[in-house]
Each structure stands twice: as C-alpha cells, then as structure tokens.
C-alpha cells in the first residue's frame, strides 16, 4: 500500500473540496482498501466520508424513498419500507457479499464498486481498465465471469453489484454534489458507461463529485423477483442475475422491468425486451421472444459462452415465477 493523505470530511461540501484534484472518497472501504493493498488503486488522498450525515432513509413526497449514500447495505436490506415496497432491492442486497461486508458497505460505494476481473486484479497482467493501453488479458484468457453484452475489444469486464441491478430495474436517480456546490440528479441508466475504448472510465461522475443520495421513485406495480445464479450458494459474484418487476392484469402483462447483472460492464437493461412483453399473455412464447431480444447481440468469449443459455433460462424461469404462464 502506498502512502497517502487522509482527510476526514465534516460535511458534504467539505468532502467535495477535500477531494478536489486527486482525492478519493472512502466510506465502508470494502472494495477500495482491497484494491489499494494490491496497488490496483493508488489514491494520493483519501477523504473519509463515513461520518457525514447521509445515513437516513427518507420518504419522498412522491411516495418514493431517498436513501442516504452512507446507509449500510445491511440496513437498507432490512429497512421496513424497502422490504415491503421494494422487495427486489432487499433481495438483491441480501444476495450480495456476506453479513460482515453488508454491515460495512455503503449504498454509494456499492454503486461504484469495481470489476472482479482476474486480470484487473493482478497488476502483472495486461488490463486496459487498470493500465490503459496494456491490452485485455481476459480476451483470449480465462473469462468465465465476463461480459456477453456491451463489451468491447478493449474490455469485457462485468460490474459486480447486485444492488445496482435492482436499482436499475427501479429507475433510481443518483443525487450528487460537486465541488462548486452544484448538485445534480443522474438517472441510473445514465450513471454507468460501457467500456468502449476507455474502460478505465466507468461512470459519468466528475472528480470530486460525491454521491449523496439514491432516490427511488414510487414502486412500480407488479411482483418482484431477484434471482442470482453463481458458482456456490452464497458469497460469490453473479454469473447471471435478473431483477424483475412484472405486473399482470386480466391475463396480460401490463408492465415489465428487467435488469441483469453479470452480463455487462453495467447493470443491463433493454427497453426493447420489456416492450415485447407488455400487452402479451404470460407464457413460453412471449418469454422466449423476450429472451431472444435480450440476447440477440450477445457474444461469448469462450469461457463465458454458457452465460448465453444461462441468461435465457434464468430470465424465462424468473418470468414464469412472477408472471405465471407455465404450461
């Protein structure tokens, strides 16, 4: 671990100004500290935001929730309003990490956690994300956990979060504060970037821009499910995960929201897939068309080819579970 400066912020504005230049925010540190030990992250300065008053979950006038960026994953998963009205979020959170990590990990930090690509984690290996221009070790290498959608020839890493997948399905808004005192609200659909030619740039946040809250709109209608498929029963990252919220009225699907983990550089959501479902009777045929649409541009890299049939089967089974239509 390289030496670094450490500052503790007294208030959000102070955190932003302390992070101006090259500072990195640290809250739970469950990802950043590991990366610093391995020198994958080498921040010159850490700004501790863990004591900022951003740890409340509030009701919004619209009937949604405003979640402080420092609310621990464990608390958010257990929050009564989340469990009752946003069960997909509670389930996604509980599918992630371990009890100890969820106690420590923050809402904002979870959104910004970094990929678990083996080549990103080994500083002796090529990785365009860690060391732009050095190449992608995963292409042509061991790529079991890698992306099948939206990847580029520079990077095929996936985003590891479960929580962010549920939030993507819930159309969360990410509220931030910048060093100049301005604030903005970013739709989660706009927060993340695909790797393209610059996989080292993972989101649209600016240097020193602090996530303060995540706002959930009022819960969408329908039943919720979060299904995570992984290599062991717990404490592993998703090979494929599906966050689904589907409403059925009078035998027709009236609303569908589907977000996916383990498939791409960001929580994946495709409106065209949802559009195909709305108005249809739940059933094998409608679900198959949706899966075909989801995966029409999917590409495997050898070790992760299985994710294409796995995503298809997981999506269809999840839809059957919450929308019915089993033969």
């Amino acid at each position: 671990m390289r030496e670094f400066q450490f500052a503790r912020a007294a208030d959000p504005a102070g955190a932003c100004s302390a992070a101006a230049g090259a500072g990195r925010f640290i809250a739970g540190g469950t990802n950043l500290l590991d990366l610093m030990k391995l020198e994958i992250e080498r921040p010159e300065k850490l700004v501790d935001i863990s004591r900022l008053p951003l740890d409340e979950v509030e009701e919004t006038p619209e009937g949604g929730l405003r979640i402080g960026a420092l609310v621990p994953n464990a608390d958010l998963a257990a929050h009564a309003a989340v469990r009752m009205r946003y069960p997909v979020l509670s389930r996604a959170l509980l599918a992630g990490a371990s009890g100890q990590l969820r106690n420590k990990a923050s809402t904002g930090g979870n959104l910004l956690q970094r990929t678990r690509c083996y080549y990103f984690y080994d500083t002796a290996m090529p990785c365009n994300k860690r060391d732009p221009g050095s190449g992608c070790g995963a292409i042509g290498g061991f790529n079991r956990i890698h992306a099948i959608l939206g990847a580029s020839d520079k990077c095929i890493a996936t985003h590891p979060s479960d929580m962010a997948v549920a939030m993507r399905a819930l159309d969360a808004q990410v509220e931030t504060l910048k060093g100049d005192g301005s604030t903005r609200s970013i739709a989660i659909s706009e927060l993340y970037r695909l790797p393209g030619d610059t996989p080292e740039i993972e989101n649209v946040l600016e240097q020193g821009e602090l996530i303060t809250h995540v706002v959930l709109p009022p819960p969408p209608p329908g039943r919720h499910a979060y299904r995570k498929v992984r290599d062991r029963a717990s404490y592993a990252f998703a090979l494929v995960s599906v966050a689904a919220i589907v409403a059925v009225e009078d035998g027709r699907i009236t609303s569908a929201r589907l977000a996916f983990g383990g498939l791409a550089h960001m929580p994946w959501r495709d409106p065209a897939v949802e559009d195909l479902l709305v108005g249809q009777a739940p059933g094998e045929e409608a679900f198959r068309r949706a899966a075909d649409k989801l995966l029409e541009n999917a590409r495997g890299y050898g070790g992760n080819d299985f994710k294409i049939p796995l995503a298809r089967r997981t999506l269809m089974a999840t839809l059957h579970d919450i929308a019915g239509g089993r033969a």
Partner: peptide, 15 residues
Amino acid sequence: ANNDLAEYHVPVHAD
C-alpha cells in the same frame, strides 16, 4: 488466474 478466495471457490456454509 483465480489466485484468491473470492474466485478460488471453496464451500461456504450455505453449500
């Protein structure tokens, strides 16, 4: 390539 216990998978309690 999987040189840590996050990716070298041994059973956890739930298994």
